[in-house]
Simulated scan of single mutants.
Amino acid sequence: MIPIIDTHLHLIYPDRFAYPWLSGAPAINRPWSIEDYLAEARPLGIEAALHMEVDVDEGDIEAESRFVLELDGIAGAIAGCRPEKPDFESQLEGLAAVPRVRGLRRVLHQAPDALSQTPHFAANIRRLAAHDLTFDLCVRHNQLPIGQTLVDSCPDVTFVLDHCGAQDITVGGFSPWREHITEIARRPNLNAKISGIIAYAGKEWTLEAIRPYVEHVIDSFGWDRIVWGSDHPVVTLGGSLTDWVGATREIIKDASPDEQAKLLNANAKRIYRL
């Protein structure tokens, strides 16, 4: 069994940090600990995880990363950030100084499109290159063109597109998502994360329903520019971690062992410097 590095694990500790958005997500509005995750993850072949920021209150951003990096099984962290703020440079310096913070993310899929399109925002993202930090691009499927604009404006920054561009699979149909993915994948500084699929597919998803979305992202980006993420616990909106790992292994079973290893662990080690 080829081992997995999970590049998109959310841990939720309401006793420590404030998560303003969770009140609107009752299905996952509870504690999600590393112990519970590892109990399911390790038998599935997940050997380590990269913690993905959980859009905590701005005052908790650095503390969140410092806390999770002390937990068993966490190989690194993607920290939250606010590139739209005047004091971002100071925030960046603080986060870059935290050992094993490997990248940053600003949740954009619930933000106004204009937030990421200002010269100030792009200039601040360009600062990440000097610190060898990645930027996870979290946009909805209909925001892929504005995500592309941001990627184009920061050619020296390594980006990772979260959740295959967050297509709502329950709606059906591939356009214009398919075309947007094909186009945005032409950016050599952009990678893609095979994650979030079953959360966007509903409880009644089938392997054959989700397969074309996964395969199109792999075909568009190639085996050298893809990583795998669980999106746990958001994945539970459509199934379980076990379901998603099983579906992934089934979809890629005809790929070569080298190709499978690139998706499941090798690319993550390189892109996130794990």
Rank of each mutant, 00 (worst) to 15 (best):
P31D: 04
P31S: 06
P31K: 04
P31I: 05
S33P: 00
S33E: 08
I34G: 05
I34Y: 07
I34S: 13
E35Y: 08
E35I: 09
E35R: 15
E35D: 15
E35K: 13
D36P: 03
Y37W: 07
Y37D: 10
Y37S: 06
Y37T: 07
L38M: 15
L38W: 15
A39Q: 15
A39N: 12
A39V: 11
A39D: 12
A39I: 14
A39L: 14
A39S: 11
E40L: 06
E40R: 13
E40H: 12
A41P: 10
A41R: 10
A41V: 07
R42E: 15
R42L: 13
R42A: 15
P43Q: 13
L44P: 10
L44N: 11
G45V: 08
G45T: 06
G45A: 07
I46H: 11
I46R: 11
I46D: 12
E47K: 15
A48K: 14
A48M: 10
A48S: 14
A48F: 08
A48Y: 09
A48L: 03
A48P: 05
A48R: 15
A49C: 13
A49Y: 13
A49K: 13
L50Q: 12
H51D: 05
H51G: 02
H51E: 07
M52L: 14
M52K: 04
M52D: 03
E53P: 02
V54N: 14
V54C: 15
V54D: 05
D55F: 13
D55N: 13
V56P: 05
V56S: 09
V56C: 05
V56M: 01
D57Y: 02
D57P: 01
D57K: 09
E58D: 14
E58F: 07
G59Q: 03
G59Y: 06
D60V: 00
D60H: 01
D60M: 01
D60W: 03
D60K: 02
I61P: 01
I61T: 12
E62D: 04
E62I: 13
E62L: 01
A63S: 04
A63K: 03
E64L: 01
R66K: 00
R66D: 00
R66Y: 00
F67A: 00
F67Q: 02
F67N: 01
F67S: 00
F67W: 06
V68Q: 03
V68Y: 03
V68M: 06
V68D: 01
L69Y: 12
L69P: 06
L69N: 11
E70M: 04
E70V: 07
E70K: 14
E70P: 01
L71G: 09
D72M: 15
G73L: 14
G73I: 14
I74L: 12
A75M: 10
A75H: 02
G76K: 06
G76I: 06
A77Q: 00
A77N: 11
A77T: 09
A77E: 07
A77P: 02
I78Q: 09
I78W: 10
I78K: 10
I78P: 09
A79M: 10
A79F: 03
A79V: 13
A79T: 12
G80V: 11
G80W: 11
G80N: 14
C81F: 07
C81A: 13
C81Q: 04
R82H: 10
R82E: 08
R82F: 00
R82Y: 02
P83Q: 10
P83L: 08
P83F: 10
P83M: 08
P83T: 08
P83S: 09
E84W: 09
E84A: 13
